[in-house]
């Protein structure tokens, strides 16, 4: 089903035509962002249907995680709570957005098989559904971030516009990875397992709950870890620190190269994705 009153589908007509079709899919998905939003909010609501707290289970479980890790690791690492709790809270919440968007990318097309096989909805709509669902989850976790930043006094030094820019860079980069993962997972059943393992590994290798200064300023794990930079672009300004210029140039480069690669893969597989399912 589609609101469009004219639908034209043709066989292959050369590479340029395929690129145009891929771009058209993207554009249509943007004009119908409202649909992706409806699907995403339906996902969140239906997941917590019938539970007492509803979607605020997201907040509660995240709050527990932050409290547990915050107090325990502050003690283990012998860091003051004032320094550590806001660091961990922002770290876990925003890294959760990265893993959420990427891990759930595995199901983006697999779960949409029914819709994809009888409508002309744009493929990208389902990517936005996954992304928006995770942003809705994030919104529920803002309560924790706001509470922590106020309680520990970071609201005086934080730089919200820069953090907003950082969140944008985070989402733009997580989104293309999610799209690649979505296509690969539709085709190969091993991919979701690989993705989950890799993201788990990344969680421990990235300074989410341990401070990067403990490793020395320019360790390879920090400099070449894109996830560290995605996280840092949001977290640092919230904690009153300017992110490195290196962080921005890396994220911008990654976004450009990543989206180009994603479009290339999507152009090649667009016709086939529905048959993979």
């Amino acid at each position: 089903m589609d609101t469009a009153t004219h639908m034209l589908r043709t066989g292959r007509r050369g590479a340029l035509f395929e690129v145009n079709m891929a771009l058209r899919d993207f554009r249509t998905s943007i004009t119908r962002l409202g649909l992706a939003w409806s699907l995403a909010s339906h996902d969140v609501v239906s997941r917590y249907r019938g539970s007492i707290l509803g979607p605020f289970w997201i907040t509660l479980s995240m709050g527990l995680m932050v409290a547990g890790m915050g107090f325990l690791y502050a003690r283990l690492f012998a860091i003051s709570l004032h320094d550590f709790i806001p660091f961990v809270a922002t770290g876990i919440v925003f890294f959760g957005v990265i893993t959420g968007i990427i891990n759930e990318g595995c199901d983006t097309f697999v779960h949409a098989a029914g819709m994809l096989s009888q409508t002309s909805l744009p493929m990208f709509t389902f990517l936005w559904r996954t992304v928006l669902r995770n942003l809705i989850n994030l919104a529920h976790n803002f309560v924790i971030i706001v509470g922590v930043l106020i309680y520990f006094g970071y609201w005086r030094t934080m730089d919200l516009p820069v953090a907003g820019l950082g969140l944008l860079l985070l989402v733009v980069n997580a989104a293309w990875i999610s799209m690649l993962v979505a296509i690969a997972s539709a085709r190969f059943r091993d991919v979701p397992q690989i993705v989950i393992s890799v993201m788990q590994f990344v969680f421990f290798m990235t300074p989410v709950f341990w401070q990067p200064t403990r490793l020395g300023r320019a360790h390879a794990i920090l400099v070449y870890n894109p996830f560290y930079h995605m996280l840092e672009a949001v977290r640092a300004p919230l904690l009153g620190v300017q992110p490195d210029a290196h962080t921005y140039s890396l994220l911008a480069l990654m976004a450009i190269v990543g989206w180009a690669l994603t479009f290339f893969v999507f152009t090649r597989t667009r016709r086939r994705i529905v048959h993979y399912l």
Partner: peptide
């Protein structure tokens, strides 16, 4: 005809709003 499958050859041209009831489970 619903627009879900792309042709390998040839052309499909549909004027009008399409509603497909192929699968009870949609949505």
């Amino acid at each position: 005809l619903s627009g879900a499958y792309e042709p390998d050859e040839g052309m499909i041209d549909v004027h009008g709003r399409i509603a497909a009831l192929l699968d009870l489970g949609l949505g």
